[in-house]
């Protein structure tokens, strides 16, 4: 089956990211496909490229990256929710006259329409908030 996940919880604040990553591993182990993870609300912080947790804690951003690398999962961040919270890729940073950027590939800034598509184009969408 084709799955998509929606992640609304902030990393290291809510358990949502941990729960979603654990669920992702389990669904892949059962032979399913994880096409998309959509980050919305405080979930957009999961893409923060400056994330620097202590070494004895899971690096959540790196865990998302490995899903993209090993399972071709698309990591989509709502652009409206992201910009408000300071999550800007190189292009948006330039557009807003900011030094540096806080989000980069394989995370991509996308519109909310992608959440709607992810909801309807997969057999299951599971929300973690």
């Amino acid at each position: 089956m084709r799955y998509a996940l929606a992640v609304y919880g902030g990393p290291y604040s809510q358990q949502a990211s941990h729960s979603a990553l654990r669920f992702a591993d389990a669904l892949l182990a059962r032979g399913h496909q994880l096409t998309t993870v959509f980050f919305y609300h405080d979930g957009v912080y999961n893409a923060a490229n400056m994330m620097a947790p202590p070494q004895d804690e899971p690096h959540l951003r790196d865990r998302w990256l490995s899903l993209a690398e090993n399972h071709a999962t698309r990591l989509q961040v709502c652009v409206a929710a992201g910009l408000r919270r300071g999550m800007l890729d190189e292009r948006e940073a330039a557009r807003h006259g900011k030094q540096g950027h806080t989000l980069e590939a394989p995370f991509e800034l996308t519109g909310l329409g992608q959440l709607v598509e992810a909801t309807l184009d997969n057999d299951h969408l599971i929300t973690f908030a």
């Binding site: 609304y8 389990a26 399913h32 299951h124 973690f128």
Partner: peptide
């Protein structure tokens, strides 16, 4: 367990989250 969690979602028409 989490494997059973996935199995529950497989069997459901859809999953509704409450938070």
């Amino acid at each position: 367990d989490v494997d059973g969690f996935v199995a529950l979602t497989e069997a459901a028409d859809k999953t509704v989250s409450w938070f």
